[in-house]
Amino acid sequence: MTRKLGSETLVIATHNAGKLKEISALLAPYGLNCISAGSLGLPEPAETGKTFVENALIKARAAAEGSSLPALADDSGLCVDALGGRPGVYTADWAERQWFEGAPGRDWYMAMGKVEGLLCEQGDDVDRSGHFACVLAIAWPDGEQAVYEGKALGTLTWPPRGTLGFGYDPVFVPQGATQTFAEIEPAQKHRISHRADAFAKLVAEQFGS
């Protein structure tokens, strides 16, 4: 049986205030006090894993060991079938500008263009299906851990549409919809997203009867 979280402090393995706010809101009904790894001064570990599970566990374990508290981490990305699952764990890396592409930082339009360019190389009949993946990992200081995986299936479209999302959202049309993730209202997106799928599994096991 998987170990259960109680009414305790949970470290969210992030230095991103927006992600802390989003995850804290999702966990608020369960009596958890969420704090970020960044607020504790914990360093961000190198994400050297080859899978979303490996990277999520790297971050969760580092936060749990550094804080002596249970920790939750997530790792997510876009997987395109015709590209062999790429960009996958390198989803954010594809948006990083090289030295010849301007000032350092992430350019998501450029990243979307890389995906589209590779698809176009395969011809007009290329399979444009793919999915967003999310892995949530909980780690306890004594080494115990739990992993929850979520997916949002869909297809890739071009050109990008919508301004409500981020990352690759403007080119991803979720299964059963006609609008991209960037055209759908955030509240609706959160109900059908890969992160929502993973959180539903976490809640069912951690807080279910």
Rank of each mutant, 00 (worst) to 15 (best):
R97D: 02
C134E: 05
G176T: 10
V53C: 10
T163F: 09
F52D: 00
Q145R: 12
E101T: 12
T51A: 12
V173D: 02
I58L: 07
F100Y: 15
F172D: 00
A28P: 05
Y90A: 11
D74I: 02
L69A: 09
F100A: 13
T14V: 08
E116N: 14
C79K: 06
D81M: 04
C120Y: 08
N33H: 15
I35V: 15
F166R: 10
P70F: 03
L164W: 04
L69M: 14
V203R: 03
R195T: 07
K4G: 01
L202M: 15
D142E: 15
L153F: 12
G88I: 12
E47A: 03
V80K: 00
P186M: 12
P29T: 07
C79L: 11
A103R: 14
G84C: 13
H194E: 03
A82T: 08
A146V: 02
D127R: 13
L72S: 06
D125S: 15
G154E: 02
Y30A: 13
A177P: 00
A46W: 02
G66H: 04
D81P: 01
W158G: 06
M1Q: 11
D107H: 08
L40Y: 09
W94L: 11
A200L: 05
L57Y: 02
I192E: 00
I23V: 15
A133K: 10
D81L: 06
R61I: 10
E8I: 09
P29D: 13
H190K: 14
M110T: 09
A62P: 03
W158R: 07
G49R: 06
D142H: 11
A17H: 11
G77K: 00
Q175E: 15
S209K: 14
P141N: 09
L5A: 03
G88T: 09
A46N: 10
G130Y: 02
A64L: 08
P160A: 14
Q188E: 14
A92T: 09
N55L: 06
V89P: 02
W99V: 12
R195I: 06
L32P: 00
C120K: 15
T2P: 13
A200Q: 14
A71G: 07
D81H: 09
F52N: 01
I35W: 03
T9E: 13
A28E: 15
P174I: 08
Y109K: 14
D197Y: 04
A204T: 13
I184F: 02
D107C: 12
G167K: 05
L42E: 04
